[in-house]
Simulated assay, not measured.
Amino acid sequence: MDFDDQLHRYFGSADLDAVPPAAIAAGVERMRVDFGLEKDRGRRFALWSLLFLLGAAPDLDAFDDPADRDAARDFMDMMDKDR
């Protein structure tokens, strides 16, 4: 799942600065629903990662597989180091 494709799918633009706040909120809600319905682990992780970057990711216990929770923790640590 390509990052720009996700942005276009949920927000209609790859430039989030150009997206109105109400559209951001609606896109985040759609992403959260899709995250809950998605069965593919890679796609779920991609959705979770973008939600994390937007400050809207579900808790790590949303991942059933411990390896996915570990990967999410690693992602969070990596993003924290860049700040």
Rank of each mutant, 00 (worst) to 15 (best):
D2I: 08
D4V: 08
D4Q: 13
Q6D: 07
L7A: 07
H8I: 09
R9F: 11
R9V: 09
Y10N: 02
Y10F: 14
G12W: 07
G12Y: 06
G12V: 07
S13P: 04
S13W: 01
A14M: 04
A14E: 11
D15P: 01
D15I: 06
L16G: 10
L16R: 09
L16V: 12
L16W: 04
A18D: 06
V19L: 06
V19Y: 04
P21S: 12
A22H: 11
A22S: 14
A22E: 14
A23M: 09
A23G: 01
A23S: 12
A25N: 07
A25H: 12
A26T: 12
A26K: 13
A26E: 15
G27N: 10
G27A: 09
V28Q: 11
V28G: 06
R30Q: 14
R32I: 06
R32P: 08
V33N: 07
D34T: 03
D34Q: 13
F35P: 00
F35M: 00
F35C: 00
G36D: 02
L37N: 12
L37I: 03
L37W: 06
E38P: 01
E38G: 00
K39E: 10
K39C: 01
D40W: 01
D40V: 10
D40F: 00
R41V: 05
G42E: 11
R43Q: 15
R43P: 02
R43T: 13
R44V: 01
R44D: 01
F45H: 11
F45Y: 05
F45C: 01
A46K: 07
L47T: 05
S49Q: 11
L51V: 11
L51F: 09
F52I: 00
L53R: 14
L54T: 02
L54W: 05
G55T: 08
A56K: 15
A56D: 13
A56G: 03
A56L: 05
A57Q: 10
P58L: 02
P58H: 05
L60W: 07
L60P: 02
D61T: 08
D61S: 10
A62F: 02
D64A: 12
D64V: 05
D64M: 03
D65C: 04
P66F: 05
P66S: 09
A67I: 14
A67K: 11
D68V: 05
D68Y: 00
D68M: 15
R69N: 09
R69W: 03
R69M: 08
R69T: 06
A71M: 13
A71E: 13
A72L: 06
A72R: 08
A72M: 05
R73N: 13
R73F: 04
D74Q: 15
F75K: 06
F75M: 12
M76C: 13
M76Q: 15
M76H: 06
M76V: 14
D77V: 13
D77E: 13
M79C: 08
D80C: 07
D80A: 15
D82T: 11
D82H: 10
R83K: 14
R83Y: 14
R83C: 09
R83F: 14
